[in-house]
Design a binder for these strands. Structure first.
Length: 274
DNA sequence: CTGTTCTCCTGTGGGC
DNA sequence: TGCCCACAGGAGAACA
């Protein structure tokens, strides 16, 4: 499910209810996430205050009194804020609830259990899961010179490259195809062949597509829902993803689909030459 | 070190 | 309608 825009959409949805609030109770119904949930989590979090909810890559960071709670949504994870007037009966895949003193309840749901709920005392940027991450795509340090420098040292296909979180975080399978289309670059292009003007276009395309997707509340292909249960509206703006066989919105040529590093890649062979 | 493939898990959609 | 298979938006681990 969630790439960066969907995680950011979730963050913006829950933050107003939960920031500067104290945790009353934590309920873990299923510990079997990507990594087992720390059995001591309820005791650790009880009576701590959530100061701020941030985001690094696709991780949500709950800044607490004595450490940070990391939540990753994996492929099928979802967060909602319930209040006491809503039904609280947990569903089959409602694995974790965090109840706050103000009455709101953060509910983590994840059918595939590829997500994670992790507690850490150390500064988050030093955590092994975060310490090797590349720049945020929407920040200024992600620019064409940076991308070109990294690209010159690699021999992978450009789509695989921009999906590598050590290069830049937050670009998942949907937005990788979209950004390459927008930049007019073939997904199989070897990164070391990237030219400066292409790097410029690609950086701008990544920033633009992610920014627009956040503004639209994310992309809902099947099951993404924001914290209030609403779908994102970026799916209707997708140019190539999920459009195999349909006419390119720019030139009319049929969009093609192939598998690249075990993932679906969509592109327009007319607009994206090698 | 780089690059590729495998794997975790459940749900769903398409083909027959 | 039911059954089976392929595939799904992530990303670390294992392997070549």
């Amino acid at each position: 499910m969630p790439e960066l825009p969907e995680v950011e959409t979730s963050r913006r949805g829950i933050a107003p209810f939960l920031e500067q609030q104290n945790i009353a109770e934590v309920i873990v119904r299923d510990h079997r996430l990507r990594w087992p949930v720390n059995p001591d989590l309820p005791q650790i979090l009880a009576e701590q205050r959530v100061h701020q909810i941030g985001r690094r890559a696709k991780y949500l960071l709950f800044d607490c009194d004595s450490g940070t709670l990391l939540i990753h949504l994996g492929m099928s994870g979802r967060l909602r804020v319930l209040d006491a007037s809503q039904p609280l009966q947990p569903d089959k895949h409602d694995h974790v609830d965090i109840v706050f003193e103000n009455g709101y309840r953060l509910r983590y749901t994840d059918p595939r259990r590829f997500g994670a709920v992790i507690w850490t005392h150390e500064p988050v940027e030093l955590h092994p899961l975060l310490s090797h991450l590349g720049p945020e795509p929407l920040e200024g340090d992600f620019d064409a010179d940076y991308l070109l420098d990294k690209a010159s040292k690699r021999q992978v296909a450009i789509k695989t490259f921009i999906m590598n979180a050590e290069i830049v975080v937050g670009v998942g399978n949907i937005y990788a195809s979209e950004a390459l289309f927008m930049a007019g670059i073939h997904p199989k292009m070897i990164t070391a062949k990237l030219k400066k003007n292409q790097a410029l276009k690609l950086v701008e395309a990544i920033k633009a597509v992610l920014g627009k997707a956040i503004a639209a509340g994310g992309t809902t292909l099947r099951d993404f829902r924001d914290s209030e249960g609403n779908p994102g509206y970026f799916a209707q703006e997708l140019q190539v993803y999920n459009r195999a066989g349909l006419g390119c919105r720019q030139c009319g040529h049929p969009i093609e689909l192939f598998r690249q590093a075990n993932r679906a890649t969509y592109f327009c062979p007319a607009c994206q030459g090698l």
